[in-house]
Design a protein around this nucleic acid. Structure first.
Length: 327
DNA sequence: GATCGTAGCCGCCATT
DNA sequence: CGAATGGCGGCTACGA
């Protein structure tokens, strides 16, 4: 992973990229990524917070990376008028052919300035959305999501959403277990879906009678049974309408969508950590049949259950499988 | 792969 | 007067 930093770099953005990819380890504790920080010219860049960064690598490193990350900047010409140095743009374009390119926060400006996002869906920090649209009308900007995954172009929203995008990439590359371990190592919540709103009005709901937290917790323990919204609402002693409204307020998602996401999560976990037959995995995660699971998995991550298992089932997880499968 | 019924979602609005 | 509620209806999407 090559992280490109420019003058005005946001320290948090760079830090989260290094931290999350650095925390991704295989079963034996070996690092799965080699993160290299790259900067143009003399490799010294000014951060937005009163310190300088001396990068270990130059622009030539970008072309050697499997993944290039444009780190966000808090100021500079790219934010003012969408301009970046010709050598930086050239290095990015050269690196982008056949490689995965990501950005965090306003790093999307850097990618867009190099023309790498033309005709692509993307996102950036909400506060810069209007300016982004003005500077880069060719880019299909969605300012309301945490991150956008367009296969080989991945962009994330402001600051902390970079953690979500990096975890998402780790999941894509190495599965949920590796990503969850990386998240634990960083002491961040395991996962937020990319389509989630940048604003959740009440991210940490008060745990009282008027909250949907209790029924969410309950639902997680009963994913194997049908969970119609009406039932969840009744358990929460609310009308369906109020329940749905509260639910979105607290989670940023609708009830049924949330349940569906949790089911996919459960299925992925079971596939990775057990040898249970696909039909059993489907039943335990609340998909009636293997066919339903197959369809859901295809829709959400584009891969068949068995293929997913063989891709991500780790030796270490196999050792743990007896423990998990009893649960 | 097309059809159809139903569940879910959400804007709207009267009411609390 | 503003916030919360919850019923209604239309649209959408998913599963059988």
């Amino acid at each position: 992973v090559a992280a490109l930093v420019l003058d005005g770099v946001v320290g948090f953005d760079l830090g989260s990229v290094c931290q999350v990819f650095g925390a991704a380890r295989d079963g034996a504790g070996r690092p799965l990524y080699d993160v290299r920080v790259c900067a143009p010219g003399d490799r010294v860049v000014r951060s937005s917070a009163g310190y300088r960064i001396m990068a270990e690598h130059g622009l030539d490193e970008l072309a050697r990376a499997d993944t290039v990350v444009a780190v966000g900047v808090a100021d500079g010409p790219v934010l003012r008028d969408g301009a970046i140095d010709a050598e930086v743009a050239q290095a990015l374009r050269r690196a982008a052919t056949g490689s995965r390119v990501m950005s965090v926060c306003t790093g999307a400006f850097v990618l867009a300035a190099a023309g790498l996002l033309d005709g692509r869906p993307a996102t950036t920090h909400w506060a810069f959305a209007a300016r982004f649209r003005r500077l880069f009308p060719e880019v299909d900007l969605d300012a309301d999501v945490l991150f956008v995954d367009d296969d080989d172009r991945l962009t994330s929203a402001g600051v902390a959403a970079s953690v979500d995008l990096c975890l998402h990439v780790v999941r894509r590359d190495h599965g949920t277990e590796v990503a969850n371990r990386a998240a634990r190592r960083c002491v961040v919540p395991a996962w937020r879906a990319g389509g989630q709103a940048q604003f959740i009005e009440a991210p940490v709901p008060v745990d009282d009678d008027a909250s949907t937290a209790a029924v969410r917790e309950w639902a997680l323990h009963h994913l194997d049974r049908p969970l119609p919204v009406a039932d969840l609402a009744r358990r929460s002693l609310m009308s369906v309408r109020t329940f749905s409204r509260r639910f979105r307020h607290e989670t940023g998602s609708s009830p049924a969508r949330w349940v569906a996401e949790q089911r996919v999560e459960r299925a992925r976990h079971l596939l990775e950590t057990t040898d249970l037959p696909v039909d059993v995995v489907a039943a335990r995660s609340g998909f009636g049949t293997g066919a339903a699971l197959r369809q859901q998995l295809a829709a959400s991550i584009g891969i068949a259950p068995s293929a997913y298992r063989s891709a991500f089932r780790s030796p270490r997880a196999a050792q743990l499988s007896s423990t998990w499968s009893k649960g």
